[in-house]
Simulated scan of single mutants.
Amino acid sequence: MKHKIIPIPKIEDRRGNLSVIEKDVVPFAIKRVYYLYDVPAGAERGGHAHIAQHEFLIALSGSFEVVLNNGTETTIVTLNKPYEGLLIPNGYWRELKNFSSGAVCLVVASEVFEEEDYIRNYNDFLEWKFNDKP
């Protein structure tokens, strides 16, 4: 599976818009939802990869960049629309940076938190990606 931007259905109304994430939007069963906010200027989040977990990131408010690395190439995706999300399959190193003031990042995950699923060192990620992975 490759990372990609997925549109989130948007219901427009003069009173305000509504977007809905249901089973047809993300290609996995949702087991955990969390969000990042009040990220200080210049701070970065992420800096890890997942062995099994898939994630879907949405900029609910403001903007931020997601730097994705599959072990051979790097892509930078800017998230700034609450009606679009970034699907990040397992096996991608990710870093979140350049958060605007007031940015809120919603993360929809395929798994509950398990520390064993995280690869927190980039060289360990490369070793797993190219040598250990079945």
Rank of each mutant, 00 (worst) to 15 (best):
E73W: 01
V108A: 04
P40W: 03
T78S: 12
V25N: 03
E127V: 14
E22K: 15
A49I: 03
L60S: 10
G46F: 03
S110Q: 10
E44L: 14
K4I: 08
D38E: 15
R15I: 08
P9Y: 10
L68R: 01
Q53F: 06
N80L: 11
V33I: 15
K4F: 05
R14D: 12
H50W: 03
L87H: 10
I21F: 06
T75N: 08
N69T: 06
H54C: 13
E44D: 11
G91L: 00
K133W: 13
I76M: 09
I5K: 12
R45N: 01
G62A: 03
P9A: 11
S101K: 09
E22P: 06
I21M: 09
M1N: 04
L126N: 09
G71I: 03
C105Y: 04
I11P: 05
W93F: 02
V67K: 08
L36I: 14
I30L: 07
F113R: 10
C105W: 03
I76T: 15
L18M: 12
F64K: 01
A29V: 13
E12T: 15
R94H: 12
A49W: 00
W93R: 01
N121A: 10
F130S: 03
C105F: 06
A41F: 09
A59T: 01
T78W: 12
L126M: 12
L57A: 01
G71P: 04
P9F: 07
S19F: 15
A49T: 00
F113A: 09
E115Q: 15
G71H: 02
G71C: 04
T78A: 12
P134L: 13
G85F: 04
